[in-house]
Simulated scan of single mutants.
Amino acid sequence: MARFVVVLPLVPLTPGDTFTVAQWPLHVTLVEPFETELDGDDLGAVLAPVAAGAQPIRADVGADAMFGPRRDILVSLVHDRGDLAVLRSAATAALRERGIDLGHTRVDYRPHVTAKRHGRVHEGERLDLTTVALVRLRPPETSHHGRIVGSWRLGPSRV
C-alpha cells in the first residue's frame, strides 16, 4: 500500500520533485493522507478531471492558530468563498468512487497553511491557488521524503 496526500501548493510543483518533512512546500491540504493499492497514474486519472472542472481559487490568509494534538503547530487559517470546500468534496467523491478508502476525512475541515522554518504566510495576504498536486508520502526510495507524483492546473486545459 502506498500513502498519498492531495494538496493545493502555493507555488506550482513539478512531478518528480522531492522534499523532506522539514522542507514541505507551503500548501493547503485538500485531502488528508490516505493509503491505496493504486499507483500515481491511476490516481492522476481520478484527480485530473476534478482539477479541470474547477477554477483557480482566490483566498485570504486569516488569523494564526495552533493545531495538532498538543496545540503546538503554528498555522495560518485560509478563508475563501466556499470554493475550497466544493473542490474538496469533488476530490473526495471522485477518489471514493474509484474505491479508495479515505479513512476519516475531517468534517471540521479548516483550510490552513502550516508555518515552516523556510517560510509562512501572514494575515491579510491573498493566495491564488491554481494547481492540485498529488504527493506520495514516504516513497520507497526514502522514508523521510515526499515526492510529487502529479500536478494539474485548476480549470480547463489550455491547448
Score class of each variant (00 low, 15 high):
Met1His: 10
Met1Arg: 15
Ala2Thr: 11
Val6Leu: 07
Val6Ile: 06
Leu8Gly: 13
Leu8Ala: 09
Pro9Trp: 13
Leu10Ile: 10
Leu10Ser: 11
Leu13Ser: 05
Thr14Ile: 08
Pro15Phe: 04
Pro15Thr: 12
Thr18Asn: 08
Val21Cys: 09
Ala22Glu: 15
Gln23His: 08
Trp24Met: 11
Leu26Phe: 05
Val28Gly: 09
Val28Leu: 00
Thr29Ile: 10
Val31Leu: 04
Pro33Tyr: 02
Pro33Val: 07
Phe34Glu: 01
Glu35Phe: 03
Asp39Gln: 04
Asp39Tyr: 12
Gly40Gln: 07
Asp41Ser: 08
Asp42Gln: 06
Val46Glu: 01
Val46Pro: 03
Ala48Glu: 15
Val50Gln: 01
Ala54Thr: 08
Ala54His: 13
Ile57Thr: 14
Arg58Lys: 12
Asp60Val: 14
Val61Pro: 06
Val61Gly: 07
Ala63Gln: 13
Asp64Lys: 11
Met66Asp: 05
Phe67Asp: 01
Phe67Val: 10
Pro69Met: 12
Arg70Ala: 14
Asp72Asn: 15
Asp72Val: 03
Leu74Pro: 10
Val75Ala: 00
Val78Pro: 02
Arg81His: 12
Gly82Arg: 04
Arg88Glu: 00
Ala90Ser: 09
Ala91His: 11
Ala93Val: 05
Glu97Trp: 02
Leu102Tyr: 14
Leu102Val: 08
His104Ser: 03
Arg106Asp: 03
Val107Ser: 10
Asp108Glu: 03
Arg110Ile: 12
His112Asn: 01
Val113Pro: 06
Lys116Ala: 14
His118Asp: 02
Val121Arg: 09
Glu123Met: 06
Val132Ser: 15
Leu134His: 09
Val135Gly: 14
Val135Leu: 11
Leu137Ser: 08
Arg138Val: 02
Arg138Gln: 07
Arg138Met: 12
Arg138Tyr: 06
Pro140Gly: 04
Ser143Arg: 15
Ser143Met: 07
His144Val: 15
His144Met: 10
His144Asn: 15
Gly146Ser: 04
Gly150Cys: 02
Arg153Phe: 08
Leu154Lys: 11
Pro156Cys: 05
Ser157Ala: 12
Ser157Val: 15
